[in-house]
Structures are given as C-alpha cells and as structure tokens.
C-alpha cells in the first residue's frame, strides 16, 4: 500500500493520504484567515494614522512603501496595503503551517501509542508543540529579516536606512548589510524559538488546567 505510512521506531500505521489532505486543507484555511486579518490590519492602521491628527501624517508608516510597491498613507494606499497585507499574510501563514504540520505525525503516534479510545479523541482541545512552533515562526521571521535587509542592500539604500539600523538595540551585531542580516537572523531565530517554547508552555498548561476543571 502506498497510502499507509509505518514508522519503524513506533510501529504505528496511519493513512498518509488522509494526513496530507488534512494538512492541505488547514494550510488553505489558515492562509485565507491570516491573509484577510493581515490585509485588514494594515488597512485599519493606515486609516488610524491618517485620522490621528499628527503633524506629519504617516511619517514612519509610509516607509512600508519601500517593501510594498504603491503603498502610501492615503485612502488609495490603504487599499494597496490591504492587497499586499493579504498576499503576504496568506503566504507567510501557508509557509508557517507547512513547517508546523511536521508536528502532526508525532501527535498521531502519541494518540495511537497511548491507545486512546475513540471517545477520548473527540473533543480534545489542540495541544501546541513548542519545538515545531519555534521552528516555524523562527524560520519565517528570520527569513523575513534577511529578505527585507538584503532588499535595502540591493536597492542601494542601506546607508540611508537609519530606522532598520535601530534593530541593533535589540539584536547586537545586526547591521543593514548581508553579513549583518544573517547575524540578526540567527539571534532573532533563537529569541523566537525561546518565546515559542514559553508560549506553548502557557497555552498547554491553561488547556490542561481548564480540562481538569
């Protein structure tokens, strides 16, 4: 059978086709939801910036136009921001879930190895894997830093990017250069990974606490 996976170490079998279809569906749903939320967030932030009554409207927010072609703090720019926010949000969410979904086979094996009865499985709240969450978020955020920094290098505005340079306050060794972007990315990955472990620990403990009640 080609659609059944057997792992040697646990001798647990599961339907790989069903798993693949589930992951594909979740990826699409997550991409859809996050695309919409990201687009809407940028849209709302743009309008808040316009109507907040600051002397120089969108002085910093408009810098996003460096990365999002056509974006500006205006009525039309808000829609451009919605478009780019939706596209980028959806892509990042899809990438995130594709990496995080690697935790699912472990979860299935744990369910089956523990001999969970059917009734036990139904209605169980999701458990988060801190390790895979850290890998997924860490990879995406670090890659984001490398891509955006090197975009500034490629367009020749690295020396003028004083705001990006401020990241050195949080990521020692970071600079708006190719080498600096990789140093920053490694640090950012570690920070994200540790925070993800903490995040998952809190989530799983609250779930367990509520389950006991």
């Amino acid at each position: 059978m080609t659609n059944t996976s057997t792992t040697d170490n646990t001798a647990v079998e599961y339907d790989k086709v069903l798993l693949h279809a589930s992951v594909k569906l979740n990826t699409r749903l997550l991409a859809g939801v996050f695309g919409f939320v990201s687009g809407l967030s940028l849209f709302v932030i743009t309008y808040i910036s316009m109507y907040r009554g600051m002397p120089d409207t969108g002085q910093y927010l408009r810098l996003l136009g460096v990365f999002l072609p056509g974006y500006e703090v205006s009525h039309f720019g808000a829609w451009v921001g919605f478009f780019w926010g939706a596209i980028i949000g959806a892509l990042l969410a899809a990438m995130f879930y594709r990496i995080y979904a690697r935790s699912i086979p472990d979860l299935i094996k744990a369910y089956l190895r523990d001999g969970a009865r059917n009734d036990d499985l139904l209605g169980m709240p999701m458990q988060l894997s801190g390790h895979y969450l850290g890998l997924a978020l860490g990879t995406i955020i670090s890659a984001g830093l490398v891509v955006t920094t090197n975009w500034l290098v490629i367009r020749g505005t690295a020396d003028e990017s004083t705001h990006a340079q401020l990241l050195v306050n949080f990521l020692p060794g970071y600079s708006v250069s190719t080498v600096g972007s990789f140093i920053g990315a490694i640090e950012l990955f570690i920070i994200t990974y540790v925070l993800s472990l903490l995040f998952s620990w809190i989530y799983n403990n609250v779930v367990a606490f509520r389950g006991k009640k």
Binding site: E13, Y14, D15, L18, L19, S22, V23, L25, N26, I104, L107, I108, Y111, L112, A116, N118, L121, L122, G123, M124, P125, M126, Q127, I202, Y203, N204, V206, V207, R210
Partner: peptide, 18 residues
C-alpha cells in the same frame, strides 16, 4: 481509530481562552 487520530490531530479545536 487511526483515521480519527489523524483528524483530531489536524482539526482539534483551539482553546480560545488558552
């Protein structure tokens, strides 16, 4: 049971409070 384990691992409800 195997299929249910896959579906539950993939589609388990997220706990909004947690």
């Amino acid at each position: 049971n195997q299929d249910k384990a896959i579906l539950m691992a993939s589609f388990a409800k997220m706990d909004p409070v947690a």
